[in-house]
Design a protein around this nucleic acid. Sequence first.
DNA 1: CAGTGGTCTAGACCACTGA
DNA 2: CAGTGGTCTAGACCACTGA
Lengths: 250, 250
Amino acid sequence: MTLHIDTRSHIPIYYQIRDQLRQQIMSGQLKPGDVLPSEMDICTECGVSRMTARQALIQLAYEGLVTRHRGKGTFVSEPKATLDSSQFPLQSYTEVLGQIGMQAGAEVLDQVVEPASEAVAAQLKLKPGDSVVRITRHRLMRGEVMSLETSYYPNSIFPDLAKLNLANQSVYHLLENHFGIAPAYAADTIELSVAGSFEAKELKINEGVPVVLVTRLSYLDDDTPLEYTQTIHRGDRFKSVVRRSRQQLK
Amino acid sequence: MTLHIDTRSHIPIYYQIRDQLRQQIMSGQLKPGDVLPSEMDICTECGVSRMTARQALIQLAYEGLVTRHRGKGTFVSEPKATLDSSQFPLQSYTEVLGQIGMQAGAEVLDQVVEPASEAVAAQLKLKPGDSVVRITRHRLMRGEVMSLETSYYPNSIFPDLAKLNLANQSVYHLLENHFGIAPAYAADTIELSVAGSFEAKELKINEGVPVVLVTRLSYLDDDTPLEYTQTIHRGDRFKSVVRRSRQQLK
DNA sequence: CAGTGGTCTAGACCACTGA
DNA sequence: CAGTGGTCTAGACCACTGA
């Protein structure tokens, strides 16, 4: 309804369309959940070809401002939620969210014993083929899937972990209460990746959009690896806060 | 030379092309710096239209595996470098890189006193228009621009900071040695963003590709903000490691 | 069923890089 | 200059969603 393009400008047409739509989202004129004009709407309104309209919308999807669904349309995304995962060192997702008054949740997709792949074995200092417990879960926040988490535990250290009920309970609590074992330290690696088809389906995002990959390795005091976890976070939702102090003891 | 597409498959053609090129990069058949087939090469070799070939190459660029340069071609990217910024709490980039034996460096682009914008004033607990020192730098690693860093310091706390020489020296050292002031703690926020035209130009990446935005706020013991820094990291290079311990005092 | 976005074609003009 | 990627057109067929 309100798109104006200047054909005499040297700014590409799809930039002009993209920037005006972004402005409407930023200003609140278009609110989370609202539908954007469809590709054809933009074509007729701006007198441009469909590929040009598409390019504007696709870029907004890459920025995380909108999500697109075939057969339905293009919708404004929810704003980012902050996950302060550092205030309280080495906690599970459930613990962290509880502390900030968030409704945390998880849906278990898989909880099985399987042979370790080469990559998993290397991380957990096992041999390929050794038994590991794999737990794959959706991480929820306010009922929405925020991330997809896959954890591996050595079956020798945690027998029967595959059979325990972890519906909505912290795995760290379970490990401590049931096995009497708690990690002493952990290293999180944060990097950027893009959604593959499985992640895209599970996180309900478009394939190929940027995501954040957090890899955690947890250890015992004696440096035995306990846990190897890969978490794929929706890029349009991820925000992590790390607090640091100059003197570690304060 | 070695692209095969199956027109009877239900997998989109550009997926097939993209996946084969990715495979060649992953396997080392195409090495960092190597040129990929041009769009026209792919058109003639696979008998597809140019937009299809483009889509495969553009996706690889979004994944960070390749970079594209008009007039030159599409090139395999360098692999990620890891920046372990947690082993040693609250250090500057220069300090961190020194410690892991990396050649760190910085190029100062701007070092000026200017009035604080509303956003900067809010973060530093100043009034909009108050004087701040802005330092904009390229962060280098092995001579390559890895990130673009913009820091703001209250001019009232650090007079003449805009005139001091910080060529290749840690700002934290400078603050401590020259002003006798060191941050007591800091909070880093990590989130995902996309490169705007300025960042793209400075980081020599394509506009619109995903980047990592790290925002740091440093404080004195009495919670006075000292420093507000925004760092844009190339998404295809960023990898951050955060170490955590369950008992903070160990 | 009409409307959505996903894939694809076969062209075009252009700015930029390097020989 | 030939070759590169960037933008753009005007079509096409398709799978999917919801009325």
